[in-house]
Design a protein around this nucleic acid. Structure first.
Length: 462
RNA sequence: GGCGACAUAGCCAAGUGGUAAGGCAGAGGUCUGCAAAAUCUCUAUCCCCGGUUCAAAUCCGGGUGUCGCCUCCA
């Protein structure tokens, strides 16, 4: 299995720290608002990563943080004149709800920054004591010049930052790339006691602390969106490297960005969509199909047209499954490991999660299922394989409800239809037909009565 | 100014040295009282120029174009 490692900018063979076990950390949300469709890409991708490793027989320990203390949360709480925990709680819950609605399997552990505050403070303290961090003006900064390898993940050299970069002026920093570990508090802000006075943590430390707490000093995979490479992941790595002298993760995976109609998504361009919005319009699996039809590292363009296409394409999966007794599919006993499609699927996914190719394999199976010349036995095999690999990508999660979708209650409309035909027959004095309709309905325990106001019908108890 | 990604048919998208997967849309055929559905078939030499090679979409060099990161961001 080969993964593209951001650290080395190469595909590398994946070797887990412990055989058949995967320690995976992917950055979760900062809960200051509903998460957007771009976040959804990352969450869905790492959900697939997790599912695929499980498919490969790994025991997966998947940790995803919830950052519930941050400037943006505080700003929102000031805006809305509520406590910051009100904001954090509201959007944490929204995150959990929306992730579930997207068909994302819950991570093994989902810690919150505020739950590990003593660990965060201890971590910063250790950095100060080791000489990698310094206190200035009641803030604590990480000293990037103390770590020669700083910049290795993003490939940025410190000098480059000085030229043309919009680095905020900060008189207390020793180097422009130094970042805040601990912020002294302004009046009215949430505070925690620390060796440096009352304050709150900076952005990056919570992730190092939470990942190492649950996964160990060095774990297998760390991931997130491509924009997190710098500064977030670089700064996480720096802290870990400074304290342990070891890499934080062996492989760094980053998914590409999402654009809207060719433009960057932003609130000012009014092309900002939350996952919640999109879920109103499209089924979770349509969204998933849309994302997985392109390689995770490529940028993806979100358009209505492509969503409609994805919808049509995905419906072919279900149409194909309808050619067999689909509810029996999960019960079919079959050694899928011998199937060519499963082999092809595995080699596609082993190659840095080539989900686009994996989907093409799904369509091969669609073709087999729809082939008039296929035997029932072949079809059942194809359906089983399709279900099996589809589940790894996160499809077919509610086969029963998807395929047995409840129709809107048509009885009223249908009865009106029938009664109209019967009235037509009665107008033509075609009593034979009209009586037959009445008798047939009676056989279904539906009683017809012709009244001066028209025909009424009732359903009799059986 | 620094760093990086990408450029394959109408659209989306695999393919990273051996002669262009797949999906959507479209066209034609079959089926059909009509419509729909279903089904079959068809549609590209890979941004441009030069080089390496028996062989390049795939490697190298040079262009052009698009996008992103460097500030909160998935």
């Amino acid at each position: 299995m080969f993964l593209y490692n951001t650290q080395t900018r190469k595909k590398e063979e994946f070797v887990p720290i412990i055989k058949n076990r995967l320690s995976l950390y992917a950055c979760g949300p900062t809960v200051y608002d509903y998460f957007h469709i771009g976040n959804a890409r990352a969450f869905i991708f790492f959900d697939v990563v997790r599912r695929y490793f499980e498919f490969k027989g790994y025991e997966v320990n998947y940790v995803q943080n919830i950052t519930d203390i941050d400037d943006k949360i505080i700003n929102k709480s000031i805006e809305e004149k509520v406590d910051f925990t009100t904001v954090a709680d509201k959007y944490s819950q929204a995150f959990l709800d929306d992730a579930k609605a997207l068909g994302i399997k819950a991570p093994s552990v989902q810690p919150r920054a505020t739950e590990v505050m003593p660990d965060i403070i201890a971590y910063i303290d250790a950095l100060v004591k080791s000489g990698h961090a310094y206190e200035a003006n009641r803030d604590v900064y990480f000293d990037t010049s103390s770590l020669p390898s700083y910049g290795s993940l993003s490939g940025k050299k410190t000098e480059d930052q000085l030229t043309g970069a919009r680095v905020a002026e900060n008189l207390f920093k020793r180097n422009p790339t130094d970042f805040t570990l601990w912020k002294n508090s302004k009046p009215g802000e949430p505070v925690w006691q620390s060796p440096w006075g009352e304050g709150r943590p900076g952005w990056h430390t919570e992730c190092v602390v939470m990942s190492q707490k649950y996964l160990g000093e060095t774990f297998d995979i760390h991931g997130g969106g491509i924009d997190l490479i710098f500064p977030h992941h670089e700064n996480e790595l720096a802290q870990a490297q400074a304290l342990s002298g070891k890499p934080l993760a062996n492989y760094w995976l980053h998914n590409g960005f999402l654009n809207i109609e060719g433009e960057k998504m932003s609130k000012s361009l009014k092309n900002f969509f939350t996952a919640r919005d999109i879920l109103q319009e499209y089924d979770a699996e349509v969204i998933r199909f849309f994302f997985l039809s392109k390689h995770y590292r490529s940028p993806i363009d979100f358009t209505r047209e492509l969503m409609e296409e994805s919808k049509r394409a995905l419906s072919n999966f279900y149409e194909a499954l309808k050619t067999v007794d689909f509810l029996e599919i999960p019960k079919i006993l079959l050694d899928t490991s011998q199937s060519t499609e499963v082999r092809d699927f595995t080699s596609a996914m082993d190659d840095d999660f080539n989900t686009a190719k994996a989907i093409a394999i799904m369509f091969d199976l669609v073709k087999q299922l729809k082939s008039p010349s296929a035997s029932e036995d072949d079809k059942h095999k194809a359906a089983k394989v399709m279900f099996y690999i589809g589940r790894v990508l996160g499809f077919f999660q509610n086969l029963e409800t998807k395929l047995h979708k409840k129709q809107p209650d048509l009885s009223d409309a249908l009865m009106e239809l029938i009664i109209n035909y019967r009235n037509e027959a009665r107008n033509n004095k075609d009593w034979k037909t009209s009586d037959r309709i009445r008798d047939d309905l009676a056989a279904l325990s539906i009683e017809i009565k012709d009244t001066p106001k028209g025909c009424i019908w009732t359903q009799k108890e059986q």
